[in-house]
């Protein structure tokens, strides 16, 4: 049969800095991904006025398939968002975006990385755990839309790890 299972095919993914011209695609993914999406103005402000902000997009076949961002504050990187277009989910794009954030944070001199995640978001939590993030605390009622708490996760090991002797 000539039908190929394209779901399993490894992707050709390009990752680079988010541009203002990416925002229509980013906003579409944002609205499909979060119950209380950021406004386009919020993204514009992040890209043009926030010197600590660093945003990247992943493209497949030239199309924005996902994006991620963080604030680089001294030696800490605070992940602000990671989202993948629903049609590209489950293909490892979130994993690549997080890996890219880690390498970029490292090159900026960050030693630790933190983020908040909803307790109901099992997929995201599994990704973060796979990358070495551990739950360290809770921000009660952080998500004002659903009154959900936020789980605070940290990854300390952007620093080298001491090996066991």
């Amino acid at each position: 049969m000539a039908v190929e299972n394209t779901q399993d095919r490894p992707l050709d993914v390009m990752i680079t800095e988010m541009q203002l011209s990416d925002l229509p695609a980013v906003m579409s993914i944002e609205r499909q991904s979060f119950p209380t999406p950021w406004s386009e103005r919020a993204f514009v402000s992040e890209l043009t006025r926030n010197a600590y902000a660093h945003y990247i997009v992943a493209r497949v076949d030239g199309e924005v398939a996902g994006y991620a961002g963080m604030w680089l504050i001294l030696d800490e990187a605070h992940v602000t968002n990671i989202a993948v277009n629903p049609k590209w989910r489950g293909r490892g794009i979130g994993d690549r975006l997080l890996t890219e954030l880690e390498h970029r944070a490292r090159a900026h001199g960050c030693t630790r990385m933190t983020l908040e995640v909803r307790p109901s978001n099992d997929v995201a939590q599994a990704l973060y755990r796979k990358h070495g993030f551990v739950a360290r605390g809770v921000r009660p009622g952080y998500y004002s839309d659903t009154n959900e708490d936020a789980i605070i996760m940290w990854k300390d090991s952007l620093e080298p790890e001491r090996t066991r002797e």
Partner: peptide, 22 residues
């Protein structure tokens, strides 16, 4: 590597990310 470091009393660390050329 662990043995060579231990023989000289050196601490040994490992890069936590899969190292890559950027």
């Amino acid at each position: 590597l662990a043995a060579a470091a231990a023989r000289r009393g050196l601490r040994l660390w490992r890069a936590p990310l899969a190292a890559r050329v950027s």
